[in-house]
Design a protein around this nucleic acid. Sequence first.
DNA 1: CGCCTGTGCAACTCAATAGTTGCACTGCGG
DNA 2: CCGCAGTGCAACTATTGAGTTGCACAGGCG
Lengths: 105, 105
Amino acid sequence: MTSATLVPVFAALGDETRWSILAALGEGDASASALAGRLPVTRQAIAKHLAVLQQVGLVEPVRVGREVQYRVVGAELSATARRLDAIGAEWDRRLGIIKEIAEGL
Amino acid sequence: MTSATLVPVFAALGDETRWSILAALGEGDASASALAGRLPVTRQAIAKHLAVLQQVGLVEPVRVGREVQYRVVGAELSATARRLDAIGAEWDRRLGIIKEIAEGL
DNA sequence: CGCCTGTGCAACTCAATAGTTGCACTGCGG
DNA sequence: CCGCAGTGCAACTATTGAGTTGCACAGGCG
């Protein structure tokens, strides 16, 4: 189970810059320095974001020689989506019941 | 289309207190004052959180007499989940292709 | 071996936000 | 009609987090 607790994952996904990083990583694995060349922030800022993303399991480091490249863990995104969907479905169900009661059905 | 842009929704969901509010609203619609009785924060703090949740469409206000009760919009949770799942699936697909290439298949 | 690239750690600034207190307004109920 | 419960607005504090600069360290490569 790679799944981190739900809330921190959402917190991690609640930042535009981190989505930029994820998008850039979608073009292929890259190191913090490489990403710094493509994004309008410093390498250190990216390193911090990568640390956050790694902590919630959205990204994982891969040592390549003396570099540290990062890869997106798509499964974690899917897992988070499923859990969120389950919650949403639960609420829909409850609202449906309330509606039925209200309509006297 | 009630869907707000994706990132702010995640930012809204990246806070424990807001999940507490959503959970409390899951027991039935409630006003800010009513929620303040159940949660360890002041009514004003809750009002701010409700404003945030409303802005991203996760919650909607319902005037009941002179009160303003709030209801969870489960559909927005589901919609967010679907969009996130689509992104996750896309990443899985890409990683699959990369893996195939790497394995010389 | 010596350099240059990439990484890691630390201190600092600045903006955003969670939370508070305080006050003013409104509208239903006795 | 008066009071009280509920709401809204505003100012303030404090903490978190994004971003920066600066420096120290490590490991390939010429």
